[in-house]
Simulated assay, not measured.
Amino acid sequence: MKLVEKCKSFVNAPLWKEEKSLWWVWILTGVVYALIKFFIGKYNNYKIFKYVFPHSIEGLTIYGEYPAEYYDSNQYGILFSALIAPFSVLPDWLGLVLWITANTAFLFYAIKQLPLSTSQKIFIYWFSYIELMTAQGVQQFNISVAAFIILAFVFIEKKKDFWAACVIMLGTLTKIYPIVGLAFFFFSKQKGKLIISGIFWGALFLVFPALYTPGFDYVISQYYEWVAQLQLKNGLNLFAEAQNISLLGVVRKLSGSEVYSDLWLIVPGLVLFFIPYLRISQYKYLSFRMMLLANVLLFVVLFSTGTEASGYIIAMIGVALWYICSPSEHKKYNYWLLVITLVVVGLSTTELVPRVVRAGFIRPYALKAWPVIVVWLTVCYEMIFLNFSRKPLN
């Protein structure tokens, strides 16, 4: 009993309810993961990222296969070479540590900027922690993808549309997904400025790699190759166990069919996504606008064939935001859906689940996505039918 009481006392210590403490938990976890991965030699994703910069300088295709350097291939835009450059010139152990911690710090900063109370942010930090570790363990850029989307919302909320356009275009030309930041366009009070700023940043980022690569023609050729690479990867992802862990993947893997187009799911999904925009009277409520952010974070994960386990850092922040912002009176439903989502998403792809279960059921049927699909449908229902004046956040 004394041990149990000590454990409870440790867990409930005020230390774990402070942002500064969570900052160090997040950062130190990243450092530990980086060092472990380096010493056991399992940091292939970082190698892929690292070599994008030298390959671009040499005028080589950044989408080719280089088995002497790494396996698999790069899936990011040529602009990514500028982001990875400061890390790629360092020794692997140091570059790897700084790469993971930089991505982690960026996301922590983005969440900190949300117009929420400190306790609500602490909840988001803890709720998404398991998925953060998953993304850190495979050195993934999805951590920063979540930050780009969140900051696009934050900057528009703060009427800093110039910087909102910057993060949207920077993220989009790096890894496509942050283009969903455009979903916050209708909340902008400076729509003209947002559009002009988007054109400015888009043009700047488009030509910027030409400053350190063989030239503009090379940059354009890499954009063409990027499109072709994404199309190829989309086809390969359809039944891949490690990818397409999404709503699209659940239907694809349950049906076992490859003859239909994903548009049969994407179009209805977009309809559900856009219907809440018709509720203009709800725009004035911060909880409604924050719920759209949750919707965007969930949608980008559930409607992509490229979604992998590490991408759920994006979705779990969306789940946490839904729980915070929901005006629903069905508190028990929300609570148990939250708990089930945390357990299934957080544990389904870890070693805590027997290998036979993971190999025979969880991976083949994208079980990790199931509770998140239910959360997304709940978000859509609440945004379409509920009154967000019941849930003031400011």
Rank of each mutant, 00 (worst) to 15 (best):
F205R: 08
L194Y: 08
A165S: 13
K193H: 07
K189Y: 10
V180N: 02
F162N: 11
G181F: 09
F187M: 13
L173K: 02
S188F: 10
K160D: 14
L194F: 14
C166M: 14
F184S: 08
V167E: 09
F185A: 09
F200T: 04
W201S: 08
G198H: 05
S188T: 06
F185L: 10
K175L: 10
F205I: 12
I195P: 01
G171T: 12
V167Q: 04
A165L: 10
C166I: 08
K175W: 04
L206Y: 14
G171Y: 11
S197M: 11
C166L: 15
A164T: 02
Y177T: 15
T174C: 15
L204E: 01
I176G: 02
I196V: 14
L204D: 03
K191F: 10
W163F: 15
P178C: 03
A203P: 01
I176Y: 12
S197G: 12
T172Y: 01
C166T: 08
G192D: 06
I199H: 06
L204R: 02
I199Y: 05
A164L: 10
D161Y: 09
D161E: 15
F187Y: 14
F187Q: 07
L194G: 08
W163L: 15
F187N: 06
L194I: 06
S188L: 07
L206H: 05
K193W: 05
M169Q: 14
L204Q: 02
K160T: 05
I176Q: 11
L173T: 00
K160R: 15
K193S: 08
F187E: 07
I176P: 02
G192R: 12
L194S: 05
F162Q: 10
I199R: 04
F187D: 08
G171I: 12
K191I: 08
K160I: 07
L173R: 00
S197Y: 08
F185P: 04
K193E: 01
S197V: 11
A164Q: 05
G198W: 00
T174L: 00
T172D: 07
T172S: 15
W163K: 12
S188H: 05
W201L: 09
L194H: 03
C166Q: 03
C166A: 15
F162A: 11
C166P: 00
F184K: 04
L182R: 04
A183I: 07
D161A: 12
W201R: 04
Y177F: 15
Q190T: 09
K191W: 07
I195W: 03
P178R: 02
L182Y: 10
A203N: 04
S197R: 05
F184W: 10
W201Y: 12
I168C: 01
G202A: 14
I179M: 14
W201T: 04
S188V: 03
I168V: 14
I168A: 00
I199K: 03
I168Y: 01
I179H: 00
L204Y: 09
T172N: 07
K193C: 02
F200H: 02
F200D: 02
V167M: 10
L170P: 00
K191S: 09
I179S: 11
G171E: 09
D161W: 10
T172P: 01
I199S: 05
A183P: 01
L194K: 00
M169N: 06
T172I: 11
L173W: 06
G171S: 12
S188E: 07
P178E: 05
K189E: 15
I168F: 03
F185S: 08
S188K: 06
I195M: 07
I199F: 13
S197P: 06
V180H: 00
A164I: 07
A165G: 05
I176L: 14
P178Y: 00
F187H: 08
S188M: 08
